[in-house]
Write a protein that binds this DNA or RNA. Structure first.
Length: 940
RNA sequence: GCCCCUGUAGACCAACCGGCAGAGUCGGUGGACUCAAAAUCCAUACAGUGUGGGUUCGAAUCCCACCGGGGGCACCA
């Protein structure tokens, strides 16, 4: 802007400078007056004199951010602004609205950033949080400032640790279908009402055995199991943190399957409830589908195959195909592999089965090494080509007594089902491929339809080759479903197996070999078994260490082993504590919790953030999360958390519900995923991304200097070099313009490209609204107390009616359109009637709160409009006196008639027939359809 | 490979239970203001709804097939 042009601008126009002044002033006032503090029913956050004390409550929540080093870009605030508009609207509409913001401060991203910059993660995280907070404040978000939380603060993670102790201190009772305190389990063992696994009386078990037995039942437990080891990050990862192509979601490093001793959470115990309770939720179909699929419940049977090494139990969804099981396959890591491996190859073994090894032991150990060295990426890339090796051992098919070979192969996963399968090549494509490669027999047990020329047949058909008089299993002729039922019944009668359910979901790997996370409230005594610290010792504060970086390795160093940073803090690790048996030496757990821990319950801490005797006061919990519609009333966040945060948080909430700490089994009743804003990104001739900020448009093409570059739209971020920050737009246009623009681009849940130049439309709109109230030359009010004319008044009431409905339904884009329409109806007037100006300011407030407050103030109101009643429409002004009906003849509009709005159907019909009489040429129409208020359709 | 979502003016989007394809924004064009320009204001044109079928008096909307775009899962027995 040149000096000359600045001089030309009317002095009281709504410019960016004016907007910025207004915005800073109102933000200060809101903060000073605590405008957006929502009262609790009791406790330190109660306020009986508050305008919404005792009003119906509403809980609006955003997925809180990780404060990354890059700050907010224009995509982040979309959801935050959306919830803010909704919350401000509901507050004006009479609700006591809780809306707060916190920070997910622990975890990999913050720590990786800290390592890159060589600073302590606390320092970088705090700096990042300060930057985020400033950016958010500038957007004018109406958060209750008293309720902010940071997961890295000891006052917060004390309760994360406390919840961990609740999980550790409980077990899942499958009969009761809920978690119960571990003391109940001990009591049952002690009373003999629950037998110990080996039948010895509880009283006779040595103390260590008792503890092991109890520990095996806990919802948080230590186990040695196959996990995802990521050398590049130096830590293990949960399944949910590994992408479909077998790399770490953070950092994109390869992940290796590795058997390690780790903390797990028994989320699988809740698998059925996590599926069933999705029915209680108003969530996008896509998210519930993803959760259902991730849990992956499948029904079938466990079948035991006798071997020299004892029975091998397999899981199958097709017990009806038992007769077609011509070999068994075990995962290379299966515990029975060593026992099954023969001393020597049986006579006449095909060469492909041995892979050229002289002994089965040699072949097995070579294959195991081969499989273990493969990353997930490689394993999946090799999926087409089946590999495996014969163990030299055999099993007996219980259906017909056939002696079948036992293989190991990496197409069988150790972590799913029992880690062993019965291979039925005729009915399973994977088994077919393997059978082809290893020359194994194929027996059809489901008859494919006439003319079927495929390989494995997985469809419906009658069972064949599936009866044996000796064993009594007769399935021939049965359809798949009947045959399954008959096979399961036979398995259970004969003791060869049992109907079973398996889940894709696996227990949640809960420990990380990192520094920046919650320490476990766990120590180990001389037995090496975990001991929970008492509540009185919480929080276990994360110690300061010289070197907070985890030991990382070459990303492809599959043989490396994790090393926790806390294990280097010797003084902290080795402690003397009195846990009731006098002072003794203990060793602390040196893993930390995964970053999801803190976000599993933050929605409850907002309810009662200052409580230091409970994670949340039960009354506050019941007030905000209970009632006729329990749970968070609106939760907005990205779809990328579909199976991470949202699954973990539901699990923790259910445990807390079972133990009586919360009043309802689900935390987030209504979920909306905000869309992703995609930014323009540019590639040069080599296909490399170039700094988007330096690209200019000339004549419809894009240039970096003199070189033409190609534009595409993609996820905003460092990798595409296209970060656009909200700050620039706040400076150039004002936060209100930015808010209106983001909301007007489309529905909240739709992704859309960011188009910088289009923002001026929102800017002009606010200028027109401003100009309708304030004279640009003098700054005086342009408002008259004279009444609005009939047409304008009707427009106003239609707008009020529509905007209310749009806000309530999160249709902010159409609310903006209606407000623009109303504003455009004012631009030609010499003065704006107050009866329109005031509701306009109020209706504008959720979207553009600063300018709305300023207009409201200038219209003579001393108080903030945050609690002013939202305008209501007069129903009488919503219906027009007359209605124009289009008249269709054979589907084409041939005429129009205007009739009174309350005209009877016969009147409309007669008028319509008269209007198109020439079309009908005197003939009686075959059919006349009158759609009241809409149209008339005539069939000739 | 399997599952889900989605295709409307040049772009972003409206169109509620099937009822006149257009609320709004950008951009285009013309005009006002200006010495000129920017900014601002005013006025305009532009699609028959991805394609092909079907149901219906009537389809952007419902059904089927195909094509394009996006997302999820992917050796889960």
């Amino acid at each position: 802007m040149s000096e000359a042009s600045a001089a030309d601008t009317p002095p009281h126009r709504y410019t960016a400078a004016v907007a910025n002044e207004i915005e800073a002033r109102w933000q200060r006032r809101w903060a000073d007056e605590g405008t957006f503090r929502a009262p609790n029913p009791t406790g330190p956050l109660a306020d009986p004199g508050h305008p919404r004390a005792g009003a119906p409550q509403m809980y609006v929540l955003d997925m809180f951010p990780y404060p990354s080093g890059a700050g907010l870009h224009v995509g982040h605030p979309l959801g935050y602004i959306g919830t803010d508009v909704y919350a401000r609207y509901q507050r004006m509409a009479g609700h006591n609205v809780l809306h707060a913001m916190g920070y997910d401060a622990f975890g990999l991203p913050a720590e990786q950033y800290a390592i890159q910059t060589g600073t302590h993660p606390r320092a970088t995280t705090e700096a990042n949080i300060a930057r985020y907070a400033a950016q958010l404040r500038r957007l004018g978000l109406a958060h209750d400032d008293r309720r902010t939380v940071r997961t890295m603060d000891p006052a917060y993670y004390r309760w994360t640790q406390w919840i961990f102790l609740q999980v550790f201190g409980s077990w899942y009772d499958p009969q009761a279908r809920r978690a119960r305190p571990i003391a109940d389990l001990v009591a049952e063992f002690a009373a003999g009402t629950r037998p110990t696994p080996d039948g010895r009386p509880w009283a006779e078990l040595p103390e260590v055995d008792r503890r092991r037995l109890v520990d095996d039942h806990r919802l948080a437990y230590v186990s040695e199991a196959p996990v995802n080891w990521c050398p590049g990050l130096g830590t293990v990862l949960a399944n949910e943190e590994v992408t479909a192509d077998g790399r770490s979601e953070r950092g994109n490093f390869p992940v290796y399957p590795r058997k390690l001793r780790q903390w797990m959470m028994r989320i699988t115990a809740y698998a059925d409830r996590l599926v069933e309770d999705l029915a209680l939720l108003e969530w996008p179909e896509a998210i519930t589908a993803m959760q259902r699929h991730w849990i992956g419940r499948s029904t079938g049977a466990h079948v035991d195959f006798a071997t020299d090494a004892g029975p091998v139990r397999v899981f199958t969804t097709r017990p009806d195909t038992l007769f077609g099981a011509t070999y068994l396959v075990l995962a290379p890591e299966h515990p029975l592999v060593d026992a099954l491996t023969a001393d020597a190859w049986p006579a006449g073994v095909p060469a492909v089965w041995t892979d050229g090894h002289a002994t089965p032991a040699g072949a097995v150990s070579a294959y195991r090494a081969f499989a273990a060295a493969k990353s997930e990426v490689e394993r999946q890339a090799d999926a087409k080509e089946k590999t495996g090796v014969f163990t030299g051992g055999y099993a007996v098919n219980p259906a017909n007594g056939a002696r079948i070979p036992v293989f190991i192969a990496d197409y069988v996963l150790a972590g799913y089902g029992t880690g062993a399968i019965m291979a039925v090549p005729a009915q399973d494509a994977r088994d077919w491929e393997f059978a082809q490669a290893y020359a194994l027999p194929i027996v059809r047990t489901v008859a494919p339809p006439e003319g079927f020329d495929g390989e494995a047949f997985t469809g419906e058909g009658p069972a064949v080759n599936s009866s044996d008089e000796r064993t009594g299993l007769r399935l021939d002729g049965l359809g798949v479903a009947q045959a399954k039922a008959a096979a399961v019944a036979w398995l259970e009668e004969t003791g060869h197996g049992v109907g079973a359910v398996s889940y894709r979901l696996r227990d949640w790997l809960f420990s990380r070999q990192r520094y920046w996370g919650e320490p476990f409230p766990i120590v180990y005594d001389e037995t090496g078994l975990p001991v929970a610290l008492p509540e009185s010792m919480l929080p276990v504060v994360l110690p300061e260490v010289e070197d907070f970086a985890p030991r990382t390795f070459a990303a492809d160093d599959a043989a490396s082993s994790p090393e926790t940073p806390l294990s280097r803090a010797g003084e902290w690790t080795e402690v003397e504590l009195d846990l009731g048996e006098g002072p003794r030496r203990y060793r602390r757990e040196t893993n930390v919790m995964p970053q999801w821990a803190g976000s599993c319950w933050y929605e409850m801490r907002y309810l009662d953030p200052t409580n230091d005797t409970a994670f949340v006061d039960p009354q506050a919990e019941r007030y905000w999360m209970g009632g006729a519609h329990p749970g968070v009333d609106l939760y907005v966040g990205g779809a990328e958390h579909a199976v991470l945060h949202l699954l973990y948080a539901r699990f923790w909430h259910k445990v807390l519900f079972d133990l009586g700490h919360v009043s309802h089994p689900e935390p987030f009743r209504r979920l909306v995923n905000q869309g992703m804003i995609q930014g323009p990104a540019y590639t040069d001739g080599r296909g490399q991304y170039v700094e988007a900020a330096r690209v200019v448009e000339r004549g419809g093409a894009f240039y970096l200097g003199d070189e033409e570059v190609r534009r595409e739209f993609g996820k905003i971020g460092k990798s595409l070099k296209n970060v656009i920050t909200p700050d620039d737009f706040c400076t150039e246009y004002g936060a209100d313009t930015f808010r209106v623009y983001e909301m007007s681009m489309g529905p909240l849940d739709a992704s859309r490209p960011w188009e910088t130049r289009a923002i001026v439309g929102s800017y002009r709109f606010l200028q027109r609204a401003w100009r309708a109230v304030v004279d640009e030359e003098s700054g005086a009010l342009r408002v008259t107390d004279a009444p609005a004319d009939e047409k304008l008044r009707r427009l106003l009431h239609r707008t009020v009616d529509g905007v209310r409905a749009d806000y309530a339904a999160l249709r902010f884009n159409t609310a903006v359109a209606k407000l623009i329409e109303l504003t455009n109806g004012l631009t030609q007037l010499a003065a704006t009637p107050r009866e329109v100006a005031e509701p306009l300011a109020l209706m504008l407030a959720p979207l553009a709160p600063h300018v709305a407050e300023e207009l409201w103030h200038r219209l003579g109101h001393a108080d903030s409009l945050a609690y002013a009643p939202f305008p209501t429409a007069d129903p009488a002004l919503l219906v027009d006196d007359a209605v124009t009906y289009p008249v269709q003849v054979n589907g084409k509009v041939r005429g129009r008639v205007e009739v009174p709005a309350d005209a009877a159907e016969e009147v409309v019909r007669a008028a319509a027939l008269a209007a198109v009489a020439d079309q009908l040429a005197g003939a009686a129409p075959r059919k006349v359809i009158v759609v009241p208020g809409r149209m008339v359709s005539i069939v000739r």
